[in-house]
Simulated assay, not measured.
Amino acid sequence: MQQASALFLGVYEPTKQKLLDILPENLSAIAHLTAGALGGAASSLVRVPTEVVKQRMQIGHFNSAPNAVRLIIANEGFRGLYAGYGSFLLRDLPFDAIQFCIYEQLRIGYKLAAQRDLKDAENAIIGAFAGAITGAITTPLDVIKTRLMIQGPKNQYRGIFNCVRTIMREEGSSALMKGVGPRVLWIGIGGSIFFSVLERTKQIVAERRTESPFKRV
């Protein structure tokens, strides 16, 4: 998924900076929300096929990724690799927008309070908190996305709203929060690692840019 992350950040960072330059300072959250959503939309072009193949393999439909891609295209057409695309966007666009907005806003507030740059551990804690909160909020969207992606050609659900109605009718509303505990834990840990590495990488890149090209080693 490195390609998807690179694509996300390649859209997110320039978009964020452009919007922050245009918008008033008190509307920075809008810049973060918008940039996160646009980054998520761009990376979905890679993430959705990867997610479809992974989930079909997890439930035993295929024994290898190349075999999965070949048979999905043969049985469902190229669009089969984008099964549940709408539900994926329904989950991941809010997820990316909310997570990055929470993270960026918490960093802004923390830096103002501390009046200094944040340490790696502080970035990690803020990233974990942002990931955990966002993971909990978007759990129902993740359940819907998963159900639509793994149904295959049988089309048990006729779109997002039919999926929600069917789950509510057959399993109750609590089914929409299935897996919330592990999801919050996993995304919290992932957010901690991702954001701390991201900030460290941005710091290294910034330091290299400020170095003179004529500096002797």
Rank of each mutant, 00 (worst) to 15 (best):
Y110F: 14
R91N: 13
L19P: 03
T146P: 06
T50A: 15
V164Q: 04
Q99K: 12
Q105A: 08
G127R: 02
R200E: 10
W186Q: 15
D142V: 14
L7M: 10
L198Y: 07
V48F: 02
R209T: 08
D120H: 09
E170T: 14
S43N: 03
Q99P: 05
R47Q: 15
R79H: 10
S212L: 11
R79Y: 05
F129N: 07
R183V: 08
G86C: 08
P94W: 00
M149G: 07
F78I: 14
G39Q: 00
I125L: 15
P140T: 06
V143P: 00
L45W: 07
I204S: 09
K145Q: 15
F8D: 00
L93V: 11
M1W: 06
A206C: 05
I189S: 13
S64I: 05
M57I: 12
L38W: 00
S43F: 00
G172F: 02
A42G: 02
E122D: 09
L112T: 11
R91I: 03
A97S: 10
V143D: 00
Y110K: 12
T15D: 11
K111D: 05
F100Q: 06
T201N: 05
G131K: 03
I133H: 01
L112I: 12
P182T: 11
M177Q: 06
Q55F: 05
T138P: 05
R47Y: 09
Q115V: 09
I144Q: 00
S212Q: 08
E199T: 10
Q156W: 05
K178S: 15
L90A: 13
A29G: 07
V217P: 14
T166C: 10
L118C: 10
Y103Q: 11
A41Y: 04
L93A: 04
K202C: 07
I126T: 04
K119Y: 11
S196M: 12
R208M: 10
P94G: 06
I98Y: 00
G131T: 06
G127Y: 03
A65E: 15
V52Q: 01
T201C: 08
R216S: 13
M177N: 10
D96A: 14
G181I: 15
T139Q: 09
G109E: 07
G109C: 07
Q58T: 11
F194P: 08
A121G: 15
I72S: 00
K111V: 06
Q3S: 14
L23A: 00
L9C: 04
T34G: 05
I160K: 00
H32N: 12
L106P: 03
V11A: 03
D92E: 15
K145I: 03
G86L: 09
R200T: 13
M57N: 06
P94Y: 01
P182C: 09
L141G: 04
Q3W: 09
G77T: 06
I144K: 00
P94S: 06
A41I: 07
F161R: 13
A130N: 08
I133D: 02
E171P: 03
F214L: 14
L118G: 08
V197A: 13
T15Y: 03
D120G: 10
I59K: 09
D117Q: 14
G10M: 01
